[in-house]
Amino acid sequence: MNRIYCDKTSGTCAEGCIPGWYNDKCNLRCSKTCSNKTCNHQTGECILGCIDGRKGRFCETEALNVKGNPVCPPGTYGDTCHKNCSERCRAYSVTNRIYCDKNSGTCAEGCIPGWYNDKCNMRCSKTCSNKACNHQTGECILGCIDGRKGRFCETEVTNGRHAGKAQQNSEQLARIVSVIVVYDEQTKPSCRWSSRSTDGR
């Protein structure tokens, strides 16, 4: 038969506490931030570690994410961690889990390709090459598709593809560094580089 024994004078539990409780008389609950709510039956220290987002001997401290900001358990945010981070947040490469700012929901690691903004809720422009853009500003980072130009590839180039290539060729030509040949007293050639563009500017 299972029986409970405790000290005759103090009432201290002779065999410790059932899971989830601690102290001499097992009258204190283990912290809900302890993994499995399991703790040392004498000290209350979390013996199986902490739930996600907490740290410390008693899991009393809010953990920090990779950016150094307080976080909820992975994938959540809000005062009570009841909101979900955007599924378009980029996962942290070490844990392959999504983290976002506890207060704002801002994605800690930026966005998956094709999306931008703090919460990664805006699509990169389809006129961006490969639909790739800066995860904060939305600027096209790999250039534009044929027939478009601008930081966001928002401007249409006249005559589309051919005009775009002509403009590109013109800009490349203007950047060619010209060489001016100068002869010294012994008529040995010595080249001086000039950054002046071919259009005379």
Results as ranks from 00 to 15, higher is better:
M1R: 05
R3S: 11
K8L: 15
T9L: 15
S10C: 03
A14F: 01
W21Q: 06
D24Q: 03
D24S: 06
K25S: 15
C26S: 04
C26I: 01
C26N: 03
N27W: 14
N27S: 11
L28H: 08
R29D: 07
R29W: 15
C30R: 00
K32M: 11
T33A: 04
C34N: 03
K37W: 04
K37I: 12
K37Q: 14
N40R: 09
N40A: 05
N40T: 00
H41C: 13
G44D: 07
C46Q: 11
C46V: 09
I47T: 15
L48G: 01
C50G: 00
G56P: 00
R57G: 10
E60N: 06
T61Y: 10
N65T: 11
V66Q: 14
K67V: 14
V71L: 05
V71R: 09
V71P: 10
C72T: 08
P74D: 10
G75F: 00
T76C: 04
Y77V: 12
Y77C: 11
Y77S: 04
G78R: 01
G78E: 14
G78Y: 11
D79W: 02
D79K: 12
H82W: 12
C85I: 12
E87Q: 15
R88N: 12
S93D: 00
T95H: 01
N96A: 13
D101Y: 08
N103E: 03
S104M: 06
S104P: 03
W115C: 12
Y116L: 08
N117K: 14
K119D: 03
N121G: 14
C124S: 01
C124Y: 00
C128E: 09
S129N: 05
S129A: 09
N130Q: 15
C133W: 01
N134E: 06
G138A: 05
G138F: 00
E139G: 04
C140I: 06
C140V: 00
C140L: 06
C144H: 09
D146I: 04
D146K: 01
F152Q: 04
F152W: 14
V157A: 10
T158E: 06
N159I: 02
A163T: 05
Q167W: 06
Q168K: 08
N169I: 15
S170E: 01
L173E: 04
V181Y: 03
V181T: 15
V182Y: 10
Y183T: 15
D184K: 10
Q186M: 08
P189N: 07
P189F: 01
P189Y: 10
P189R: 04
S190W: 07
W193K: 08
W193T: 12
S195D: 08
R201I: 13
